[in-house]
Design a protein around this nucleic acid. Sequence first.
RNA 1: GGGGGUGUAGCUCAGUGGUAGAGCAUCUGCCUUUUAAGCAGAGGGCCGAAGGUUCGAGCCCUUCCACCCUCACCA
Length: 490
Amino acid sequence: MTSDAENTSQQRTVRIQKLEALRESGLNPYPYKYDVSHRADDFFAGFDELESGKQVISAAGRLMTKRVMGKASFCHIQDDTGKIQLYMKKDVLGDDMYALFKQLDVGDIIGCTGTAFRTKKGEMSIWVESFELLAKSLRPLPEKWHGLKDVEVRYRQRYLDLISNREVKDVFLARTKIVQTIRSFLDSEGFIEVETPILQPLYGGGSAEPFTTHHNRLGMQLFLRIADELYLKRLIIGGFEKVYEVCKDFRNEGLDRQHNPEFTMVELYQAFVDYNDIMELMQKLFTHVASVVPGSTTIKYQGHEIDLGGEWLRISMLDAIKKYADIDISALDENDLVRECKAKGIEIEESRGRAKIIDDIFTEKVQPNLIQPTFITDHPLEMSPLAKIHRDDPNLTERFELFVCGMEMANAFSELNDPLDQRRRFEMQRELSKRGDAEAHVLDEDFLRALEYGMPPTGGLGFGVDRMVMLLTDQANIRDVILFPQLKPE
RNA sequence: GGGGGUGUAGCUCAGUGGUAGAGCAUCUGCCUUUUAAGCAGAGGGCCGAAGGUUCGAGCCCUUCCACCCUCACCA
């Protein structure tokens, strides 16, 4: 992308000349404040009273359109809540101020005072008595009718996207509302919101490659967290019984429409409950959030109609793989699985361990079928180094993942609280690491020490906020729910 | 990394080998309830970059860059 001064030179030069002319005439093109009595939504909501009372009001915003018709003009200003039409009349404003108006450019920020009135066509407008330039704009805005379409510019210069495309702003307002709703739900359930380190001497709690960084004074390598799990469990050990964190996590992975290297999760941990309780909590939370945004438990996502309000499907990982891939993995070791996948034409990467192969089968054969909300439960032991062994089957764990529209939305366990078993699991991961698995969990002695003091039975959950927002706002790409998504450098 | 696509004026887009186009935006003039305001005129381009083919390249070829889609990778 080319973008700079030389490109916009003509229009920019004209605007800088206007700016200098304003300064010479004694006007500050960048004054300090403006008293706003009404924003657009207040104005429209109270219009009838404002009009009949002839009350003088003030409004401010960015000039978005401008129609000069000789001695009278119309324009629209846009504020945080909407657009208001202004009527500027030469014999009301006086010659000087009207001349100033004609010098304004679309994109300038102005404030005005005046009274409410309706035009002949019925548009609620302000009959402007005076206005003031609040900030001069030096670059032309995107085209008023088509808006800004160039995706790269939309992400790189998100402010232009937000100015030009109202529906984009609505998605981010919805995101804020969703996060608020999650918080208020968890608060009302008695959870305590906490903050744990982003810079960690060891990374843990997930299978992912981390970003590394360095602390100069301590002379040590640090990692940006890939998950919060191990710190939140330390808090459970410390006596907090219900904690959660809205956490930015970082994973050094490829980018696609469901992955951004920094993303937001909510993780929560509750003492004295198991994964069945957490499953109920997840469902309750999700349906509650949907009932606020978009406002219904029946939602549409990319052409699918999703019913969050009904019964959610539950199927064990083994049964799901039997059903969709026709493989009974419980009886098969790593070599058998490799053979079976080859026979069935399932693409897998060999010599990465049994867990990865099962995950490959699941991702390829099962996941795309999980459209309605589905809990996949009871994952094999090797896949789940932080989950407690299943009470009925020592080869499985008490774990679930939630899928909607083929997207993984959440991951939860009855948390492993047997410190000696946890040590063995870390050691299994170390073997995977030796075999070249860059995402294997690393052994965390400090965490093991904490576990050895005793952690109560605990249910834990992590879910992706970005993906939840995607689902609830019907966005296909994670970049459309992250204000400033990661891009290659310009 | 593989496959497909896109890149032309500030923005949205036309332009399949023969002088670089439109609408909006900008500048000048007219216009006192317009609303994608209108009318008349003007300026604005290294056609993503570099090579090549050709008498002649925005267009054809090669390489590169950026972005999008898709596959792979990635809980």
